[in-house]
Design a binder for these strands. Structure first.
Lengths: 190, 190
DNA sequence: GTCTATAATATGATAGAC
DNA sequence: GTCTATCATATTATAGAC
């Protein structure tokens, strides 16, 4: 695959991701995909022969990679811990458009049925695992024991996801921004 | 409306609520509603002439009333604060089936388009407002000032919603139960 | 790799009998 | 108040030209 082809592939996946974020699996339609990508239905099937499920799984893989690059990588760099957390927080603020974007991990499973649901749930569970482990690892570095560090990692994700839900529900992103700003203290157990 | 009619009405709304919780607005179909309620499509249109949107708004109103009865009422009783919070937490644990149920406020907006989305967003925003204010009021009673008490109320809802998202995403309800158990201390600013 | 055209099915919604 | 039968539309998916 050439560099140009990769970029196009990436743009298509980003467009699909936006549709899945806004509409969930059940609410996402091929009509919405064609509007978002500029590609007609047969072209989408050419790229994703198994249809919507394959699109969803490709989008999860893409989002996971972006999470690794933008959040997990900064967190696991060398150097002082708190600046690393702050870099990860800054990237998350961009990734979720300051709290105005729904999280794919929250929205995607909604409306998926039967085998589609099973496949999506598994992919999402793995993504949650990565996310939680990354924060737990930082909490451990900041002094928490094994059990406590896992809880802190889990609760960090709880706060991020919850603040995005509240932002969407109330139209107010204050809690999301507060959550990000508080992340270094929170992971330190303060 | 007789007492029996009210009960049937309630059972229909509960069935619709389960479908909306699991599938969002976009993923919820009349076929799913007929399976959940036992009523055929024309009977559903007889009860809700404006179709899916009217069903969704009726379900929100019903869920809001249940929230008032099960959570807000215990919180605003007279007597010691902490036991009141514990009663509200216990009721929420039941309301969300120990963390196995998706929150309607999270799932319902997913997949709604155009005017449907606007109407649903407004109804959900009001419900979030009630929820946040109730917790903020308790935080104020526990000593927080005006600004801080609102933040605590907001963050309490952030944690509850987030822990339900994480429970659905990971299949692990531990964070939800931890959130409920920690609620009295959290609202006290501890 | 993308398209026009089209088929098969699912979905939202209604008419009219009981 | 519920049903059978039906309709118009939307949706998933494919065939075949370029």
């Amino acid at each position: 695959m050439t560099e140009t082809e990769q970029k196009i592939e990436q743009q298509v996946l980003e467009a699909l991701a936006e549709v899945f974020q806004a509409h969930g699996f059940g609410g996402a339609t091929l009509t919405l995909f064609t509007k978002a990508t500029g590609l007609k239905r047969p072209s989408l099937y050419h790229r994703f022969p198994n249809g919507k499920l394959e699109m969803a799984l490709a989008v999860v893989a893409f989002a996971k990679q972006r999470l690794v690059d933008e959040v997990l990588a900064p967190l696991s760099e060398t150097g002082e811990v708190r600046p690393r957390i702050k870099r990860a927080a800054k990237n998350m603020e961009q990734l979720y458009d300051g709290g105005n974007d729904t999280c794919l991990m929250d929205a995607l499973p909604v409306g998926a049925k039967g085998d589609d649901r099973k496949a999506i749930d598994q992919a999402i569970a793995e993504m949650f695992g990565c996310f939680i482990d990354a924060f737990a690892s930082v909490a451990k570095e900041l002094g928490a024991n094994r059990k406590k560090s896992y809880q802190l990692g889990e609760d960090a994700v709880v706060r991020l996801e919850g603040s995005l839900v509240v932002a969407r529900g109330t139209g107010n992103t204050a809690a999301f921004k507060r959550t990000l700003a508080d992340l270094p203290n929170f992971l330190a157990g303060a």
